[in-house]
Simulated assay, not measured.
Amino acid sequence: MTLSVSFGGLRSFVEVGRQGSIKRAAGELNVTPGAVSQQIKALETHFGVRLLDRGTREVRLSTDGLRLYAKIAPAFEQIDDAVQLFDGRRPGPETLVISTVPSFAACWLASRLGRFTAEHPRIEVQIETSVQLADLSGGSTDVAVRHGSGSYPGLDAIRLFSPQLIAIGSPNLLTDGPVPSPADCLRYPLLQDRDRTDWSIWLEANGVKASQSAVKGPSYADDALLVQGAIAGQGLAIVRNVYAASALVAGRLMLAIDAPVPTPAGYFVVTRPDRMNVPKIAAFRHWIMREAGVA
């Protein structure tokens, strides 16, 4: 029996269901949002039902849309998985899409990726950054590196390392060298994280009762920017040691005091269990574990 429904239309519908957005689905499919909308409308005309409930900023699957999605989405996942099995055998380059948080990409991953590409010249790395864990159940993301507890239901997560909170500052600000005690950091301008909590956590872990002054100062939503503010001499900062390591080695930053505080969370490389052995993913997992000293 010949399929009278457009395969591309069904693919677009599944991607809209995964992404919850016509615009994001279009990005994944490398087409325009208008093309995706037209394909969905053609499906709705063909089936005689409404497949999407369209809102101002997002779309949701209608009742009929959910029924259709439940039937065809697994089939497209099987197709994607089957294609991935042969990616490593293609004569040309293949793309590995890595999702991580902006700070980790800027301060740790980017400077090391040259070693991965030297080992695997046929794999073209694409870094995507977001605060939330990327949807590994579909779409283009192959592997993620995330900071958290390691609890990612349905996914395989391997701990790479657990960071420490350290106090840093520019040598131009700390002209007299490291401060004598953690409490002496409060004599300097302080730079804050997004939630204005890290200074209080660090001080109290070092036996200093945090005062109101511990939460004052400009705040940065991203730790990479916080590090840059400290390098510029704007104040002292509390950051995870992984983000300041290269600047410390280069002498652009120094420890305000050698009093690191361990953190319970860690950095994890996260993948789908059924895709762990895809050659490009297995290669990256092995490489990053070796870089982190756990392989």
Score class of each variant (00 low, 15 high):
Ser130Trp: 00
Val261Gly: 04
Arg275Asp: 07
Trp108Ser: 11
Ala244Val: 08
Leu29Glu: 08
Ser62Glu: 01
Lys216Glu: 14
Leu3Asp: 07
Ala245Phe: 02
Thr45Lys: 15
Asn30Glu: 13
Val16Phe: 00
Phe284Gln: 05
Ser99Asn: 02
Gly114Lys: 09
Glu119Phe: 02
Leu113Asp: 03
Thr2Trp: 07
Ser170Gln: 07
Ala26Asp: 04
Ala237His: 01
Cys107Phe: 06
Arg11Glu: 00
Lys209Trp: 00
Leu85Gly: 14
Ala134Thr: 06
Ser140Ile: 11
Pro91Asp: 12
Lys209Ile: 11
Arg252Lys: 04
Val145Asn: 00
Ser99Ala: 11
Ala214Thr: 10
Arg252Thr: 15
Asp222Val: 12
Leu165Ser: 00
Leu109Ala: 10
Asp81Thr: 12
Ala106Ile: 13
His46Gln: 12
Ala244Glu: 09
Lys23Thr: 13
Gly9Val: 01
Arg290Leu: 09
Ala25Ser: 08
Gln132Tyr: 14
Leu3Arg: 05
Phe104Gly: 10
Gln126Thr: 14
Ala292Leu: 11
Ser213Pro: 12
Asp81Gln: 11
Leu85Asn: 10
His286Pro: 13
Asp222Phe: 09
Tyr152Phe: 02
Thr2Leu: 12
His147Leu: 12
Asp87Phe: 02
Val215Asn: 08
Ala26Cys: 08
Ala73Trp: 01
Gly233Met: 09
